[in-house]
């Protein structure tokens, strides 16, 4: 089993705030890792560190077996890493198709415009927004923007995909659609790390779960095992709604 991503004792501070403390995990090729934790636990910060937006103060990150600590986002993209943002970032004044073409052009496969356009059309129909291809991205609704964000990342044909709350703000039927999409991405052999609050969905999708609280990892393992972990339940007790959900869904 090859490891696509190894995060080794990563620590990140902002001034006096310890955002991540010695976070360590591995992700095997073709697996889905669910990253959960209460609000402010450091999940998005962890993505930013893996993705090269921040450089960690301590620890190492290995991608495809190479040390990539401190590399820039665009260098990682060129190696085959792609991500979506929690708050979607459509390129508003470009069309939906152009948004996705950018992803294909500048990813690790480095396509020209013509082949990128072909990939864009495939990916748009895969995520189900082909009908919107010629609209300006700014005119889409939230669910469509989330799909666009996903399409742009997929167009890069990444080896590792970081998904930051792609389900948040969607209706139950939209969530079902998105979950199917994530599963079929995994079936294509893409490894995924996924931040999510919708527990039912992430339990279905993930091979393993990883739990952060106050920047510390408090549990890791199979989904069933993790949600019954007393430490995890305790962490979520700060967030009664979440704890409730965990109890019901677990």
């Amino acid at each position: 089993m090859t490891l696509i991503l190894q995060v080794q004792a990563v620590t990140k501070r902002f001034g006096g705030l310890q955002a991540l403390t010695k976070v360590t995990f591995d992700l095997a090729q073709g697996q889905v890792l669910g990253l959960i934790g209460p609000n402010g636990a450091g999940k998005t910060t962890l993505f930013n560190v893996i993705n090269g937006v921040y450089t960690p103060e301590e620890g190492r990150i290995l991608f495809l077996g190479k040390d990539v600590t401190g590399k820039k986002s665009y260098e990682l993209a060129k190696m085959g890493m792609a991500r979506t943002h929690q708050i979607v970032r459509p390129l508003k004044e470009l069309t939906v198709r152009e948004n996705v073409i950018v992803g294909a052009c500048y990813g690790h496969e480095n396509h020209d415009l013509i082949s990128a356009a072909k990939i864009a059309d495939e990916v748009l129909s895969f995520v189900g927004i082909s009908a919107r291809a010629d609209q300006l991205a700014g005119s889409l609704n939230v669910a469509q923007k989330k799909r666009l964000e996903m399409a742009r990342a997929l167009a890069a044909r990444p080896k590792l995909l970081l998904l930051d709350e792609v389900l948040a703000g969607l209706t139950p039927s939209e969530i079902d659609g998105m979950v199917k999409t994530v599963l079929s991405i995994r079936d294509q052999g893409v490894s995924i790390v996924m931040i999510e609050h919708v527990m039912k969905a992430i339990m279905n999708v993930s091979d393993r779960l990883f739990v952060l609280d106050y920047g510390q990892q408090i549990a890791e393992g199979g989904p069933e095992e993790v949600v019954h972990n007393p430490k995890v339940i305790e962490a979520y007790l700060g967030d009664p709604q979440m704890a409730q959900k965990l109890m019901e869904e677990g």
């Binding site: 937006v53 986002s73 665009y74 993209a77 950018v102 742009r152 890069a156």
Partner: peptide
Amino acid sequence: LGLMTIREDEDAAEVIGIVT
């Protein structure tokens, strides 16, 4: 297209893989 991506969102452009 890369330049226009930078115009729209420079941080996103870096993440997409544009050597800004």
